[in-house]
Structure formats: structure tokens, C-alpha cells
């Protein structure tokens, strides 16, 4: 029982982290209608920035949010302005041109970081690294807990932004119907660029919170990209609430599966669920509710 509770709580906490990866992705997917295969790479870039800030300047990873978010926001803004947006009008044989472009961007980001920082594993040592609270027989890792709180806060912020502000309405309108939105006087191009940057900034903030938890190396990016699209499809495209649900389902499936079935298959559980959802529940968890 204790083992079950422990895996359940770890699964929930990890699921919260996954949710924050998924939210940025689902936002981009909703508006740009593409799978952003450079999403995890943005997280990786942000983690390196946070690491440099900690290693050379002694800035606490949590405070480095104020550096990583603006840097990645502008990086993503220029990427989407000069690399992704021009492709919308370009004629090409395969409609997946933008997706393939994000693959290229992903490679460039990973290889650039590998070039500068090599493939070595890096981590930060802070006062809370490896610390945990013990309640009964269950332990809660402190960095994991803070990251979980952050992901809840980010979700609330995003929900507010999308539902209550004018900008959010423009984003939702563009996601629903690009042409109709531009006929209503919304600059669809600007919204597209902004959404890509916003989605990337969200994951950049996550990067600062992930640094005390995960090892950092260039290939960490692609791993999180894989998780991001699993979450997005699980939750249903373009659904913020769905992304949270998808993240938690993935976190639970991985932790419980690793505990009770086979630890080595940890990463496979998510992918198997992903394929099952794609085939049997194409709308994702979102389609189960009316929200």
C-alpha cells in the first residue's frame, strides 16, 4: 500500500511537470496547426541558460526564470517570424513542411549546445537538491514539489490569459478559424508569431524549474519533445485542461507501470497509451467532456 501511495504521489508530481510541457505544445498546435518537434529543445536551451547563470553567476535556478523566459521568448519569436511563417505561403509537395522545419531547428539547437557544452551530463547543486519531506512512509522531493506548484501557477496564468484578456480572445479566434479571424481585423500573422513565442516561453520557465530535478545534456531536448506530443494527443489538441489531464495520466502511467510492470519499459508505456488514444479516442481526453 505504501509503495502504491508513493508511486501515486510521484506520478502526480511528475505528471504536473509533464502538464507544463504539454501546455506550451498544445497552445502552439492549436494556433499553428503543426507539431512543434523543437519544443523540448527549447526546454533544453532554457536549462542551459539557467545552468550557466547558476555556474558562473551563482544565480539560483528558480530566480533564473527572469533570464530564461525573455531570452527564449525572443529566440522563438525570431524563429517563428523568419523560419516558420514564410513557409505558410510556400508551395511544397508535402504539407508537413513546417513540421520538418522544426526538426531542422531542433537539430541545430541540439548540435549548437553540444558544440559549446559537449555531451557531458551536468546538474546544479543547491540547498534543496535531493532534499525531501517525509510524511508517514512517503517522501516528497522538494524540487519536484516546487515545480509542481509552478506548473499549477502557470496553468492558471495561461487560463486567465486565454479566457479573460483581449489577446487571449485573439489567440483563440485565430486557432478556431484563421481566415475569419483575419477578416475581423486580427493580425493572424502577429498572433501566430506571438503564440509560438509564448508557448516556448512557458517551457523556458519550466526549464528553470526542471534544472534541479533532471540531469542536463543536449539530447534531453528530444526526450521531452517526445513526452510533449504524447501529452498533447492524450489531452486533445489545443485544450489547456486536456494538457493537464494528459500530463497527469502520462506521469501516473509511467510511474505505476515502472513500479508494477517493468522499470525498463518506463518510456514505452506513454507511447503505447499514445498509440491507443490515437486509434480509439482520436479527440483525446477532451472529447470525453464537453469543456
Amino acid at each position: 500500500m505504501e509503495m502504491f501511495l508513493q508511486s501515486l504521489i510521484s506520478g502526480l508530481l511528475v505528471g504536473g511537470l509533464y502538464a507544463i510541457i504539454g501546455i506550451g505544445m498544445t497552445l502552439i498546435m492549436g494556433v499553428l496547426k503543426i507539431i512543434n518537434l523543437a519544443h523540448g529543445q527549447m526546454l533544453m536551451v532554457s536549462m542551459y541558460i539557467a545552468w550557466v547563470a547558476w555556474y558562473y553567476l551563482g544565480i539560483d535556478p528558480y530566480l533564473s526564470v527572469f533570464i530564461t523566459v525573455p531570452v527564449v521568448f525572443y529566440l522563438a519569436k525570431y524563429i517563428s517570424k523568419y523560419l516558420l511563417n514564410p513557409l505558410i505561403e510556400k508551395d511544397s509537395i508535402l504539407p508537413e513542411n513546417q513540421v520538418l522545419m522544426t526538426v531542422g531547428i531542433g537539430i541545430v539547437l541540439v548540435e549548437f549546445m553540444r558544440f559549446i557544452f559537449t555531451s557531458d551530463y551536468r546538474s546544479v547543486q543547491t540547498s534543496y537538491t535531493g532534499q525531501a519531506w517525509h510524511i508517514g512512509g512517503i517522501s516528497i522531493a522538494i524540487p519536484l514539489f516546487w515545480a509542481f506548484l509552478f506548473s499549477i501557477a502557470a496553468t492558471i496564468f495561461l487560463f486567465y490569459l486565454l479566457m479573460k484578456t483581449d489577446l487571449g480572445r485573439q489567440i483563440r479566434a485565430t486557432a478556431q478559424d484563421r481566415l475569419a479571424a483575419s477578416l475581423m481585423g486580427i493580425s493572424a500573422e502577429k498572433i501566430t508569431i506571438f503564440t509560438y513565442a509564448l508557448g516556448s516561453a512557458l517551457i523556458a520557465a519550466a526549464g528553470s524549474f526542471f534544472l534541479p530535478i533532471y540531469y542536463l545534456y543536449p539530447d534531453v531536448g528530444p526526450e521531452f519533445t517526445a513526452k510533449a506530443f504524447v501529452i498533447t494527443i492524450l489531452g486533445g489538441l489545443g485544450s489547456t485542461v486536456g494538457a493537464i489531464a494528459g500530463g497527469i495520466v502520462l506521469g501516473l502511467a509511467e510511474t505505476l507501470g515502472a513500479t508494477y510492470i517493468a522499470a525498463g519499459y518506463r518510456d514505452a508505456f506513454g507511447l503505447i497509451i499514445f498509440l491507443l488514444v490515437l486509434v480509439f479516442l482520436p479527440g483525446g481526453l477532451k472529447s470525453l467532456t464537453k469543456v
Partner: peptide
């Protein structure tokens, strides 16, 4: 150390300017 990096740049270039 740049072999994969340059290849990635080439991919971006081709998709942007030579979609075919």
C-alpha cells in the same frame, strides 16, 4: 564537432529556399 550542426543548417536552408 560541427558536422551535425552544419547539416541542420542546410536542412533549414533547403526547406526555406528549395522546397522541392
Amino acid at each position: 564537432g560541427m558536422h551535425a550542426f552544419v547539416f541542420g543548417l542546410l536542412v533549414i536552408f533547403v526547406i526555406l529556399y528549395l522546397p522541392g
